[in-house]
Design a protein around this nucleic acid. Structure first.
Lengths: 249, 249
DNA sequence: AAGTGGTCTAGACCACTCT
DNA sequence: GAGTGGTCTAGACCACTTT
């Protein structure tokens, strides 16, 4: 890492960033190693500290290095990562239909997770939940689009009284009422035959194909506080998402 | 926008960024309007240009403003947007199982999209495709995990000869052979009964529930060049994804 | 030509981490 | 205490856009 001969029209910090990126790609600075300090780089290339820092900032933005005060600049990747991303801007947007639908026929139960339930949810035994079982219907209240069962941490049981007037996802209701910020959602999609009890409620034949979506919502502490399962009649629902390439930086 | 009284321990540029963000949120600088120039801000707050630029950079990273040389700093949002994101780092990761599975029993056909096929794929009539129908099996070649049918733009028909040795998604094979970069993927998931012909191949009962995934892959020009449909036997497959909150900036 | 943001220098002090 | 990155100043020149 000593010669710079790329992009002579480009700003110095870009040329420097490129030179360092090349060195990293060549393995001169393996992942996990430290880059020379800023002062070193200044002397080595005869650039001001501003220029060096601007180059390092660029490398940081492309995900090649992290920087920490008192430690230095650590290489964390040898190549800019290519990422596809799916972004949504609200909870209701995840549940694509949620803002235009409502829950009806709620059944509320207070349950404590035993071994079995805890295993099913991926929670811990002994945790207290409000269990909500309901049907989700469109605005015209024709055939339901989903049967849904939610296990909500008991501390948020107060949503119970507001549920009837709320259209949208329960997660966003909790956010509103409790100022609890959802920071991670995990979603699993699978197909399964709809069993008789649920088929009746959804007005489909027992055993007909259903789309099952399991979602867990976790808050600031990373601990899931809501576990939701939805079962959609095959023909009445599909889940779409667009993944776009995110340029590194 | 004139007083600063937030976070006295915080760096000046952060305080300034916060002050400006507050002004924008209050509507003092509506979306579409220009912020004062850097020199103005320097005089107004008695900060150096470095500090002012650092604050503006922060606002840019949070998506509140854009900056253009010769124009100025334009307000593009009044509030930082909260985003949930799902990121994957490769095509094969989208098809979660793809890197450990292979396609067998390929059937190749050259087809030209008529009205019906074009409508089904979301393509245009007259487009030429290589149609690949195959089964995806695990390493042990036990029961197949999916039946799959791919319509690949005819210009990439050369993948045909490399398909047998390739494990992974076809999209990544096209990327490798043709230097075609995939920039957008659209994915739709639904549940449907598996029809008899496919059920036979998958070794499940006809009419049993299946998870159907339709994906289109588009390249640099935004035009989809690959249309893939997979049908998975209900119990043998599920699709998981994690969505994380992405801090604005 | 005037005004904007983009790049760059030389120098300073500070907060943090490690030994 | 030595070394790291983080913040900050004062001043300069340049490239771009609009008038």
């Amino acid at each position: 890492m000593d010669k710079i001969n790329l992009g002579l029209g480009a700003p110095r910090y870009q040329q420097l960033a490129q030179a360092i990126a090349d060195s990293i790609a060549r393995g001169e600075y393996p992942v996990g190693s430290l880059l020379p300090g800023e002062e070193d780089l200044c002397r080595q290339f005869n650039f001001s500290r501003f220029t060096v820092r601007e180059a390092l900032r660029h490398l940081q933005e492309t995900g090649l290095v992290t920087r920490r005060q008192g430690i230095g600049t650590t290489v964390i990747a040898s190549t800019p990562t290519r990422k596809f991303g799916h972004m949504i801007e609200s909870i209701d947007q995840l549940q694509q239909y949620a803002s235009e639908t409502r829950l009806i026929d709620h059944v509320f139960e207070d349950v404590v997770a035993d071994e079995e339930l805890a295993a099913e949810l991926g929670s811990t035994p002994g945790m207290k939940f409000l269990r909500i079982t309901a049907l989700r219907v469109g605005a015209d209240e024709s055939k339901p689009v989903a049967w849904t069962r939610i296990h909500l941490a008991a501390i948020y049981a107060g949503v119970r009284s507001s549920l009837a007037e709320h259209s949208g996802a329960i997660g966003s209701l909790v956010e509103k009422l409790y100022d609890q910020k959802i920071t991670a959602i995990r979603q699993t999609v699978s197909a399964a035959a709809i069993d008789e009890a649920i088929a009746d409620m959804l007005d489909v034949a027992p055993g007909s194909p259903g789309l099952r979506i399991d979602r867990t919502y976790a808050g600031h502490d990373g601990i899931p506080f809501e576990f939701a399962t939805s079962i959609h009649p095959g023909p009445r629902f599909s889940l779409s998402m667009q993944l776009d390439w995110m340029s590194p930086g």
